[in-house]
């Protein structure tokens, strides 16, 4: 009997706790709604709803931070930020909420390319311009105002160009160069763009021989496994292209485990994309030769676009971020101090 009462008591307690937090939440959003409309009326801020994918990587966090620091009240924006926790349905819900709240602009960082037609149509019907950031959306072009993000194809080309220059510098431009590629998750826009971009440069060099390309799913463990297999299959690999930093770390581990050396003073050259701070550390340690940046600091560009739009101007449909690359000939330690991610 006593136990039953205890059980009931516990259940009641949890229910109360859940109720409280739910009630608090409801109150919160009510408050913020009111606050928001008051603010809008008093300060005439531009209200922007941002739907971000989540916080799955350092890159994503840097992107979020950049958006938050650019769209501040001082700059004339009122930012409603929504973290979708890696779920498209959350993003769709967020965009619908933005429409209901009658925001001035919507910024969408889509998690996948497809499935946005209906909700973007709703935004269009409500007359709210949508800026798509980072990944692309696979919908009719009229459904969004513009897209801003990285030019993966160009990143691939830059990598190819860098490799050509570096080989020339070493006096190996006529030698047969044997390459392997650790691709990202097949079908991801970064994988497609980087592979295509590099392939363009590859075609121009007849002495470059791509031995094999395989997917390492953008993860370190998988990258190590695939690279380990490459090393068993092919005796003299000269260059490994890793389509993100994590796979590059895995590749470095695999190369060392196979008793080979990598980096600027090693047998195998390692090229990596993204250039997060861990990649800088690997370059300083002499494990990676070069990293090609994928710029996450979308905030300033988005701010620029929104400013133009709100003053009645028009913007280009596709806007690329400025991106650069880093290699071991640079003063990496000082650059690293200024990097945000």
């Amino acid at each position: 009997m006593g136990r039953r009462i205890l059980l009931c008591g516990l259940t009641l307690f949890f229910l109360c706790a859940a109720g409280c937090s739910a009630g608090k939440k409801a109150g919160d959003s009510g408050n913020s709604d009111r606050e928001q409309s008051e603010l809008e009326a008093s300060e005439n801020l531009i209200v922007v709803g941002v739907s971000q994918i989540g916080a799955e990587s350092d890159w994503r966090n840097a992107c979020t931070k950049s958006i938050k620091t650019s769209l501040t009240r001082e700059n004339g924006f009122y930012l409603i930020f929504d973290d979708a926790q890696q779920k498209q349905e959350n993003q769709i819900k967020a965009v619908r909420n933005f429409i209901l709240q009658e925001v001035d602009y919507i910024v969408l960082c889509p998690i996948v390319e497809t499935g946005w037609d209906a909700v973007l149509q709703e935004a269009r019907d409500a007359g709210i311009p949508v800026v798509v950031a980072d990944r692309q959306v696979d919908v009719d072009e009229d459904l969004y105002t513009c897209w801003v993000g990285a030019d993966f194809r160009k990143e691939g080309e830059t990598a190819g160009g860098w490799l050509a220059e570096e080989l020339e510098r070493q006096g190996r431009e006529d030698e047969e160069i044997r390459l392997v590629t650790l691709q990202g998750t097949v079908g991801a826009s970064a994988q497609i763009g980087r592979t295509e971009g590099f392939a363009r440069v590859l075609k121009e060099h007849e002495n470059w021989k791509m031995l094999e390309m395989a997917s390492g799913d953008f993860t370190q463990a998988k990258g190590e496994e695939v690279m380990g297999e490459f090393l068993k299959k092919y005796d003299d690999i000269d260059v490994v292209i890793c389509e993100n930093d994590n796979m590059a770390f895995g590749a470095v581990d695999a190369i060392k485990a196979a008793g080979k050396t990598c980096g600027p003073s090693g047998e195998i050259m390692v090229l990596s994309f993204d250039a997060v701070s861990a990649a800088f550390e690997a370059m300083i340690d002499g494990d990676i030769n070069a990293a090609f940046e994928c710029n996450p600091l979308l905030g300033p560009k988005i701010r620029e676009i929104l400013d133009i739009l709100s003053s009645g101007g028009t913007v280009d449909k596709i806007q690329y971020m400025e991106e650069t690359y880093f290699d071991t000939s640079m003063d990496l330690e000082n650059i690293l101090k200024t990097r945000m991610y």
Binding site: E56, S57, T219, Q220, A221, E224, N246, F249, G250, D253
Partner: peptide, 14 residues
């Protein structure tokens, strides 16, 4: 073991 392999805790992928 998995974390030590990649000397990091990649919560999304481990």
């Amino acid at each position: 073991v998995a974390a030590s392999r990649i000397s990091s805790a990649d919560s999304n992928n481990i």
